[in-house]
Amino acid sequence: MYLLIINPRSGGGAGQRTWQSVEGMLHSRGIPHEPLFTQNADRAETQVLGALARRDDWRAAIVIGGDGTIHSVLGALRRRGVPLAVIPAGSGNDTARGFGIPLATEAALEAALQDRCLEADLLSGAGGLTLTAVASGFDAQVAVNVNNGFYKRLCNAIGAGQLAYIIGILHTLMTFKPCRVSVTCDGKEQAFEKAWLVSICNLPSYGGGLLICPQAEADDGLLDVCVVHGCSRMQVLRLFPTLLKGTHVALPFVTMLRGHSVAVHFAQARHAIGDGEPLGTAPLAVRCEPGALRVLSPLAAAREQGAAGPCQASV
């Protein structure tokens, strides 16, 4: 039995359209499933916990939605030991990208039904669990502006979710002011002047495919950190096209770090986000929890024996 967790409003209505397509495919193949609709992130974990408690033969929880929908149910899936599968229907869909899950609905469903799992790490902090990245500073402010702006809804409506982030970058660039930041990675503290952003990543990309930490791997037990500091607004603007290929890591105003735990303290209050969802403006303390979540992923077959295997829910 599969639990389908559907956010019908994700991606400007893409969640509902995707669910209708998936429902037809599941019925035509006689695959047992139960739908659960959720639109409120604050209630999603409770809803999912309640659904998972009703039976003990769940093969996986398949989320139809975006990164924010996935974020809202991480605690429930980890607590109940049920594997996560993703059929992307959001604006950014970076969780799907990071796990090699196709963006096309039918192909994503096929990946969800293959029963091959990756033992993925989770990022744990005061704000709860995160799967893709915890970002603070400029890019978090971009996300806040995008989520609060009318242009996200407009871009989703025309199927151009990534365009909303580009508009958000230009919007934020006009008003954001960099400041000093202290970053402590595995107990070693470093200070950076005129810091624009600090991103703590478990997957290579966020923001709709921007490769902030291109070397990040979901199952290596490590956090990858990108710090952008000491540069002008024009340099920041020129930085973003390089994120599409991850070539920014060689720039002199970009510092890459790696470790098991990271603390971030800006001299001035800065927004932070986890999986694109707001985490407030308090200083960050994030640690890696290795292998905390099993994810149905096409990448599983490519991993060494022992790093991945058949999914078995331990409810």
Rank of each mutant, 00 (worst) to 15 (best):
G65K: 01
L3M: 05
A313L: 09
L223M: 05
L122C: 11
D275C: 07
N93H: 08
E193A: 09
P283H: 08
P252F: 03
A140I: 06
L170F: 15
I5W: 00
L299F: 08
G127W: 01
S91Y: 04
L154W: 12
L279Q: 09
H260W: 07
A44I: 09
C117K: 03
A44C: 10
L251V: 08
V262A: 05
S232D: 02
D220E: 08
P310F: 14
R287G: 05
L3K: 01
C201K: 00
V227I: 06
I70D: 09
E23L: 07
V183S: 03
G276Q: 03
G280I: 04
V181T: 04
G24Q: 15
V134M: 06
A14D: 03
C179Q: 10
A191Y: 02
G207A: 12
V315S: 11
R80Q: 15
G24K: 12
R80G: 14
G149Q: 10
T175H: 09
R9M: 14
E45L: 13
G159I: 07
S124H: 15
R80H: 15
L173Q: 06
M1G: 11
D42T: 13
I167K: 01
V198Q: 00
A143Q: 05
S314W: 05
R55D: 10
G13V: 06
C201R: 06
P83W: 02
R55W: 07
A44K: 01
F192T: 03
A61K: 06
L74C: 07
G159Y: 02
L84R: 04
C288T: 14
L154K: 10
Q305M: 11
V82S: 10
A285Q: 13
